[in-house]
């Protein structure tokens, strides 16, 4: 499913007239079947961008193509319900939105909105639990009694149950400890490779996304200032520093070596490869 922004701008309407543009003339294309990451400091427009993709917000200028849907301010009768069936959105701390008494009911909720037939619902629910690494034993449990990591997975499963082609995650790793974080990153990777989804992750956890990102968009003040795969983006250490964005520590290290000792080691994202490089250059 293609997602393309064409000269899109968005301005929040406030009581006072002088509002800055949250999104300022952005054109970009989300890479299909890949993990797309959107990074940037607070206030750069990441959340606004995310809400534009599933029409929670309508651009004040420009248009967005999402598959067969076109989102722009002149098209008033877009079928948002169908759009959101194909584009799933998982907010920050999704477990705060639980309101059902069992995991099963929570996951069912979305399916019931789309009037799925009962036969299909049960299988769908079990499948979505498997996708996040849980199983049917969780079905009758009260979601509020689960651990942080488990709650997060159930919240994700309830969106996955609709089998969207595109899934957007807003800060999926925030508040999780290391083990749960790695687990979650594995799930994201699996959603891409095994289930062929297009993933969009909005985050500031640079170390986490370094492990899974295929394509990165760097936002600042509502504009895309840099985009590319992780090599292209993170090698611009100084540029990103100016925008108050830190690069993954392994890159920062190689950059320091280059700057102070003028030794160019390759871009390494695995620590073992870095070690080999260091060994070669020291001896």
């Amino acid at each position: 499913m293609e997602i393309r922004f064409n000269n899109v701008s968005y301005e929040y309407k406030g009581i006072k007239k002088s509002e800055k543009k949250a999104i300022d003339n952005i054109s970009l294309e989300i890479k299909k079947n890949k993990i797309n990451c959107i990074i940037g400091p607070s206030g750069s427009g990441k959340t606004t961008l995310m809400e534009l993709v599933n029409a929670l917000l309508i651009p004040t200028d420009g248009k967005i193509n999402v598959g067969k849907f076109v989102i722009d301010k002149n098209k008033k009768n877009i079928n948002v319900k169908e759009l959101r069936f194909n584009v799933g959105l998982i907010f920050e701390f999704p477990e705060q939105q639980f309101f059902k008494s069992t995991v099963k009911k929570e996951i069912e909720f979305g399916l019931k909105q789309y009037e799925y037939k009962l036969k299909n619902i049960d299988k769908r629910i079990s499948d979505s639990l498997l996708m996040v690494g849980l199983n049917d034993s969780f079905l009758n449990r009260n979601p509020f009694t689960l651990s942080n990591g488990e709650m997060r997975k159930v919240a994700i499963a309830s969106v996955l149950a609709l089998n969207p082609k595109v899934i957007i995650f807003d800060e999926p790793t925030v508040g999780l400890d290391d083990a749960s974080k790695n687990n979650l990153l594995k799930i994201l990777r699996m959603l891409k490779t095994r289930y062929k989804k297009t993933i969009i992750v909005v985050t500031h956890d640079v170390d986490a996304l370094h492990k899974i990102a295929d394509h990165i968009f760097v936002l600042n003040d509502g504009k895309v200032i840099l985009e590319g795969d992780k090599y292209e983006v993170f090698k611009e250490v100084d540029l990103l520093q100016n925008y108050k964005i830190k690069v993954p520590k392994i890159i920062e290290f190689s950059h320091k070596v280059f700057k102070s000792k003028n030794i160019k080691m390759g871009y390494r994202d695995e620590i073992n490869d870095l070690i080999k490089d260091i060994y070669r250059h020291v001896k």
């Binding site: 069936f85 705060q96 909720f109 909105q113 969106v159």
Partner: peptide, 16 residues
């Protein structure tokens, strides 16, 4: 703010 977030996430799950 919290209410808004909840409404948005429910809208994203198909609530009309």
């Amino acid at each position: 703010n919290e209410a808004n977030k909840i409404l948005k996430s429910q809208a994203s799950r198909g609530v009309d």
